[in-house]
Design a binder for these strands. Sequence first.
DNA 1: ATCGTGATTGTTAGC
DNA 2: GCTAACAATCACGAT
Length: 142
Amino acid sequence: MPRNAAGSSKKATKDPNAPKRPLSAFFLFSQDERPDIKKKTPSMSVGDISKEIGARWKKVSDDVKKRYEQKAAVEKQKYEVRLSEYKKSSGSGSPAKASAKGSAKAAPSKKSPKKPVGKKSAKSKSSDEDNDDDDEEDEDED
DNA sequence: ATCGTGATTGTTAGC
DNA sequence: GCTAACAATCACGAT
């Protein structure tokens, strides 16, 4: 069973950007539940918590699972892009240009923090698979 | 003090 | 098509 000497996270020092694999729905679910479980039982170690999460994972409704799957699907897409960049970096001898991005936005003007209310009222959403994310991430490039 | 292990399931890539 | 390995996480153990 020891698929690998380590539980995971093998030294990623192999590559400079090391495009990590897209997290699976279960992992996304874990990140959400882990802190909650930890709050409930802070004496648990990762192994025990993982077991608990695994049990909960089977208890979550299929709809919930699907929701995480969608998120995972998005991560997967990002992963593909990440691979492209990674490949590009490794493609030519070019040293990745040392981050061409000019720092992380020094002026966080952010967009209008207004939330278009009036639409879906916080409630019922099982059949309606809506994306609650009102503002997904708006990256305005200057 | 620092690194690595351990457990869960899913997904991805190689053969 | 199947197999192998790796993805996050954090307390605890070993060195």
